[in-house]
Amino acid sequence: MIVRIMGEGQVRLADSHLDELNTLDDALLVELEKDDEAGFRRTLGALLEAVRRLGEPLPDDALEPSDLVLPAPDATISEVREMLREDGLIPG
């Protein structure tokens, strides 16, 4: 799967890591519902760090279609809400 972090680039990520990412995505949804800015920042940072840690960066000149687009690290709560699907940022 190809994941784009807005403002950073793309990484190739094995589907086997989706469970770990979905756990963080679920926590992020709870924090968004509660308008918990501190929790939102912490969990968004953890989610993006997990993608960076588990994924393999694609070269800057690679133009692969992204299967998943995640917000930039400095995205606001309202910006992330606009990106949400029924099941969060990450399907599943």
Rank of each mutant, 00 (worst) to 15 (best):
T43H: 09
L24F: 05
G88K: 02
R81S: 03
L21V: 02
V69Y: 01
D35F: 10
G45H: 10
L24H: 08
V30H: 09
R81C: 03
A38T: 09
E31K: 13
P65E: 05
L70F: 05
E37K: 11
P73W: 01
L28D: 01
G7C: 08
L89Y: 02
I90D: 01
I5E: 08
G92N: 02
G45I: 01
A50H: 06
P65S: 00
V80K: 01
R53I: 06
T23E: 15
E82I: 00
G39T: 04
D26I: 11
L47K: 06
I2V: 12
D74W: 11
G7S: 08
I77Q: 10
M1T: 11
L28F: 05
L24D: 07
A50Y: 04
T43G: 04
D25W: 05
D36A: 07
T76F: 03
D87A: 03
T43I: 06
H17M: 10
V30C: 11
A75F: 02
Q10V: 09
L21H: 04
P65R: 04
D25I: 03
D87W: 00
L21N: 04
D36I: 06
E8C: 09
P71E: 09
G45N: 12
D87G: 00
M6Y: 13
L58I: 07
G39P: 06
E82V: 00
L89P: 02
L18K: 13
E82Q: 09
L47D: 06
M83G: 01
D36M: 01
D26G: 13
R53Y: 12
V11R: 11
L70Q: 06
D35A: 12
D15S: 15
D25N: 10
P73H: 07
E82G: 00
S16E: 15
D74Y: 10
V11N: 10
E56Q: 15
L54R: 14
P71H: 07
G45K: 10
G7Y: 04
A27T: 11
G9M: 05
T23N: 15
S16K: 14
